[in-house]
């Protein structure tokens, strides 16, 4: 927007404090307003494993919802050959957990502004991006690359959501086979563990921390609490009420105390209501 243009020469890259370079982005050549992309080389040491090599990865902020991974790839390929593009809702790494899911079984992706990790083939591409002049916007939708939005996109989405039952069945079957296999492996492992606990030839038993097997009661928090509660109730049932005189006297005392408490409570409630002028009938 305005302030950026005033302070910087138009054909230079626009660097802001924090190390980000601002690139402008336009939906198509005839739209006036521009978004700003904030880019920087990726430099987080903690993530060594994930496919984001430090020197070749570009960290991109504020990618508008209509830019898919493919679009981003094409947008940045003008700076160099791209190896991969990853779009996320928030900066950080994704926890890869569990088996791979078919797309149709994934929860729908959020349609918001995204952050991206663009991995180039060469490290030199990064600097090419960072020196890109601010006033030459990246154009999302061009003659060659039509980006569908609005009704067109929704119709496409609807069409894609239609899936053949046979195909769906296939996906389910393959997942379940996979699942069964994993389960078998797990069982196998447990069996081996159990075997290990058997006596060996010399009569030694290897003792490990308990795992599944013979258990007195379910091993969970809720179950623990239930048992405690049950014991408390048992204790309570044993007591006799109003049997001795002192007990009777105590009950009476409690009753009066209860009445008093209620009276005080009501008094306070009235004060509250009075403060709210709740007694004007009309």
């Amino acid at each position: 927007m305005a302030p950026s243009k005033k302070k910087h020469a138009d054909d230079q890259a626009y660097l802001i404090p924090g190390g980000f370079t601002v690139l402008s982005l336009q939906f198509s050549s005839d739209t006036a307003a521009r978004h700003s992309l904030y880019v920087k080389e990726h430099r987080v040491r903690a993530e060594k494993s994930s496919g984001r090599p430090m020197d070749r990865t570009l960290f991109v902020l504020n990618i508008p919802p209509y830019c898919s991974e493919g679009v981003v790839k094409e947008l940045f390929s003008q700076f160099g050959v791209i190896q991969s593009v990853e779009l996320l809702d928030h900066p950080g790494s994704v926890q890869e957990s569990g088996p791979k899911l078919a797309k149709i079984f994934m929860p729908p992706a959020k349609q918001g502004f995204k952050v991206g990790y663009v991995v180039f083939k060469k490290a030199s591409s990064i600097s090419a991006v960072k020196s890109h002049p601010h006033d030459v916007p990246l154009v999302v939708c061009t003659e060659e690359r039509q980006v569908k939005t609005g009704v067109q996109k929704w119709i496409q989405q609807y069409t894609e959501s239609l899936i053949q039952p046979e195909k769906l069945q296939e996906i389910v079957d393959s997942f379940m086979q996979d699942y069964d296999k994993r389960k078998e492996q797990e069982e196998e492992r447990q069996r081996q563990e159990a075997e290990q606990q058997q006596e060996d030839e010399e009569g030694w038993v290897k003792v490990t921390r308990g795992h599944k097997g013979a258990k007195a009661r379910p091993h969970s928090e809720a179950a623990n609490q239930r048992t405690l509660q049950r014991e408390k109730q048992k204790k309570k049932r044993k007591e006799l009420m109003n049997f001795y005189t002192w007990q009777h006297r105590n009950t009476q005392k409690e009753h009066i105390a209860e009445l008093r408490k209620k009276f005080e409570e009501d008094k306070q409630r009235i004060a509250l209501l009075r403060a709210q002028r709740k007694f004007r009938p009309y």
Binding site: P3, V22, L61, N62, G112
Partner: peptide, 11 residues
Amino acid sequence: TSQVSARSVEV
């Protein structure tokens, strides 16, 4: 970095 969605920057 977590709060720049649809925002412009001013230095």
